[in-house]
Design a protein around this nucleic acid. Structure first.
Lengths: 345, 345
DNA sequence: TATATTGATGTAAACGATTACTGATTGAAA
DNA sequence: TTTCAATCAGTAATCGTTTACATCAATATA
């Protein structure tokens, strides 16, 4: 592959002129410009980005840490990031770290090695103070998950309010026995949703039954939703509504409920969270909280870019959510008794 | 961030020695090694990979072109690639190009710019001779899709035989009116599956009805499967079995059939392709061809790495597939007549 | 006409690593 | 004791750009 020197020789100019033509900032005489451009074409010259990056002391590259790209929720956020990256001329390394700290750190070390100019974290756990060590020195932005006790810029929704919206809907529709399928992870969103769930019940004068709460192990998977719903609905005095903290859990919960012979929503209302596309594939379509995933990703990207350029960025960006009513939720009709008998184990 | 020079000064050695210690090939006296290591720690030195890459004339980076990460089929292949990349110390840029040639070329140009050492293409169309131009000069491997007329290394399965396996199963189970949901794309897999579909019917002495074939527009989506099944099953003399060239199409087809009042598999057998995890989420679980996605990705990565090291690599790697029988397929029982009446438009 | 100003171009020094080459030291062989 | 090879460390060139600075010609100003 030809270098600038060869281009310069062929065009009979200095390499400085070649560089100037290529970057097109300072003025160069038209005939020289033409000579350089011709030489570039004839030699099929392509700039060596490694050399350029070394000289400019940048990489035009970001790292993105995600727990799991297979999850359509993350996939949509990434789509937003991708579009923004394209717009700003950035590339990115996408890493599936499954939230393993070791791996996370190994990847963030790329910032130190000049392999990346900034980072976006999609699944920062509560209490992850080590992230702060990076964020102090390098442009780091958190997306969807964050810990409010650290001053690291983040983009998310108001998880507490979103859950209150769900609970308001359920309670005002007559449900009094409301269960929730949560996860045993250390995400702020999880703890906020749980807090809102409890607060809503308490404020409505309803008891907070620990038997109505399930903490699924690990990830937001269909299987976990299935199992949790099974165990929730197998109870004598089972809940009439299930609030699931993700759509994949809700889809699993619906399947689990159906498998036990319950109709959704007639016998059990199920509400999800996120609004991934699978919510409208299988009936009943899932009533859920719509998160502006694409925008969350896109905004996060804007923030890193601004940080890279040493601009001031807001720490706490919350985008609007929305409760969308579909088929899996219905007012409580009081027709549950007949089903309690057919519950197996 | 400290450089080698600072480390060298602090350790009172030359930068050559620092480099030698860091790369650990040539021998360095133990006390010097220690001094260098101490200096590295004290200064929190991290090598600048841009500089290293410039000097070594490599990037340790790959580009991966995929039409759509959201599709779980591609996601699994990428998981295989990711693992291999990790093993070999490579990073990769993942690009969703949606098969747009312009974009594809723009990204492959990174090979010329020394931004990547090799490329893996997940969705090369038939007749894409321009890919060959890159493949001649740079390490390029194709994964899942390829064009047999070009000598570019690729990893895939035997799509013709896999489809013959499906058709053998259907025909030997008494189905004679077999439809297929294909796509109007330019993939070799698509044309091979269609060829096998026609051949199987012909060889079994069954007519190839063009009315039983649907070419969905664009992508392998749930929606397309839904619509295509609807139109196939709305016919007077509708097929009793549908072979879908992807699982997402099959899931859509099952939903479409159900929406029309058909039972799957009692009234219509539906068979998919790929074996993504969604096949076993909703009943009926989908009978499908299992592709070793992870291995396909992993093997493709091995091939690029070997090519990068100028080793000889095989051109045509085909991995084994398998037909797995689940709930969505059943022998033809002849009980269809009663349903033809309830078919709407 | 002499001088200051402007603007285009070239020269050469970075950027931070790797590595060919050179030189010094040591120990073994003659 | 001399010679030679082997081992290890240092010097400096190199990778391919960008860019501060120097140069020079042309124009404007006095």
């Amino acid at each position: 592959m030809a270098t600038m020197i060869e281009v310069a020789n062929r065009a009979n100019v200095s390499i400085a002129t070649v560089s100037r033509v290529l970057n097109g900032q300072s003025c160069v005489a038209p005939d020289l410009v033409k000579r350089v451009q011709d030489a570039v074409k004839e030699l099929h010259y392509e700039p060596n980005f490694t050399a350029r990056n070394l000289r400019r002391n940048e990489s035009r590259t970001l790292v993105i840490l995600t727990p799991n790209i297979t999850n359509p929720y993350y996939a949509n956020i990434i789509a937003g990031i991708a579009q923004g990256a394209q717009e700003h001329g950035y590339s990115y390394f996408l890493f599936n770290t499954e939230g393993k700290r070791e791996l996370d750190e190994q990847i963030l070390d790329r910032l130190k090695k000049h392999q990346a100019d900034g980072a976006i974290l999609l699944a920062a756990e509560l209490g992850a103070d080590w992230i702060y060590d990076y964020a102090k020195e390098y442009p780091v932005v958190q997306c969807s998950e964050f810990d409010p006790q650290f001053e690291i810029p983040h983009v998310s929704i108001d998880n507490y309010q979103a859950t209150r919206d769900v609970m308001d809907y359920l309670i005002s529709n007559g449900h009094t026995r409301i269960g929730t399928i949560s996860i045993d992870n250390r995400f702020y969103s999880t703890s906020e949703r749980l807090r809102a769930y409890r607060d809503a019940l308490r404020e409505a004068g309803l008891p907070v039954e620990e038997d109505y709460i399930r903490y699924a192990t690990g990830e937001y998977t269909f299987k976990m939703g299935f199992k949790s719903a099974h165990s929730l609905l197998a109870q004598e005095n089972r809940p009439t509504a299930l609030f699931c903290i993700s759509d994949m859990l809700a889809l699993g919960a619906i399947a689990g409920a159906k498998e036990m012979g319950f109709r959704v929503p007639e016998d059990v209302t199920v509400i999800g969270f996120d609004d991934v596309e699978y919510t409208t594939m299988f009936h009943p379509y899932v009533t859920t909280i719509v998160q502006p995933c694409f925008d969350i990703g896109h905004t996060a990207l804007e923030l890193v870019c601004n940080k890279i350029q040493h601009q001031q960025v807001p720490t706490n960006v919350l985008l609007p959510h929305r409760l969308v009513l579909r088929e899996s939720a219905a007012p409580y009709e009081g027709n549950i008794a007949k089903f309690t008998s057919c519950v197996t184990g």
